[in-house]
């Protein structure tokens, strides 16, 4: 093959792509909505069936509503007590969850980064980190309330403490499981240590990091409720602990429902953020 050779590179329009796969078509949003409905309707149907069964059981066996309230009862309480009690309780707990979660994300990813960069720190700190998780969160709650009073702070700290661990562990795993060949490739392309971290290890860790965030998202409300149990003046946990001895069981259930919905919302926000930041992680296997 010499310089006057007419074929080769010049004969390579992309349409000649021998695989012929070319570019994968983008799925339009409506199709995705249909797919989502198709995917989730059995779950939704099961949920509706369970609620109906619950309603039916209460009616048939004539269970008093202070023992187990019927779904209709809970819904009625939700509407009746919304503006006086539940709305402000929800906002309080939501603030604790969001602030605590945000702190844990920043601290968790930050600490994972430090541990990843410094093997010595990792060796020293990691066992302590695991050890710290053996202290039950329930016993920390009242202690924090003693130290910081009935303020927002102890709840936020508790949420952060609960969320922190899965985030650190999963992020660290994500860093460590970066394809070593990618790092070798980066070295041959004159990548610095920092460049490799920023351009390879960090993005590579995102799917694992978000697994941690999703777990943390479901823990967050538990942390907030324990915090409120430990001492508080408002919040969904506060409502529950007040309503239980008064046998306002349907109010307790209404609070639980709101708490679940909040956790689900947080979970969805985290999942959505992941799809935004790491869309490639859901596109099947690349490279």
């Amino acid at each position: 093959m010499s310089a006057q050779e007419p074929r080769g590179a010049a004969g390579w329009p992309p349409s000649d792509d021998p695989g012929g796969e070319g570019v994968a078509a983008k799925t339009p949003p409506t199709t995705r909505a249909v797919a989502a409905v198709r995917h989730y309707w059995p779950t939704a149907a099961l949920l509706v069936a369970l609620v109906l069964l619950w309603q039916l059981a209460i009616n048939v066996f004539d269970v008093p509503n202070y023992v187990v309230p019927a779904p209709s009862e809970i819904f009625a309480t939700l509407v009746a007590d919304w503006s006086d009690i539940l709305a402000s309780a929800l906002w309080t707990t939501m603030a604790e969850v969001i602030i605590g979660f945000a702190i844990s994300v920043v601290a968790g990813v930050g600490i994972a980064t430090i541990l990843h960069w410094s093997p010595l720190t990792r060796r020293v700190v990691y066992p302590l980190l695991i050890g710290s998780q053996t202290v039950p969160i329930v016993v920390i709650a009242p202690i924090l309330a003693i130290i910081f009073g009935y303020t927002l702070l102890p709840k936020v700290l508790l949420v952060a403490l609960v969320c922190f661990f899965p985030i650190v562990v999963n992020t660290l795993d994500g860093f460590a499981s970066t394809d070593p060949d990618l790092l070798r490739m980066m070295r041959t392309l004159d990548g610095s240590r920092w460049g490799s971290f920023r351009k390879i290890e960090f993005p590579a860790s995102l799917p694992s990091m978000f697994s941690g965030l999703r777990i943390a998202a479901t823990y967050a409300s538990v942390g907030a409720v324990f915090g409120e149990y430990g001492g508080s003046e408002n919040g969904l946990g506060y409502v529950m602990i007040q309503a239980t001895p008064q046998l306002q069981t349907s109010l307790v259930f209404a609070a639980i429902l709101l708490l679940s919905l909040m956790s689900i919302a947080l979970f969805l926000v985290v999942s959505g953020t992941e799809r935004l930041l790491a869309p490639w992680a859901h596109e099947g296997t690349a490279s």
């Binding site: 060949d181 490739m185 041959t188 392309l189 390879i200 790491a278 490279s287």
Partner: peptide, 12 residues
Amino acid sequence: AWMPQRDLLLPW
């Protein structure tokens, strides 16, 4: 420069 069998393109 080093190029292995896998293309090692960064998916992100």
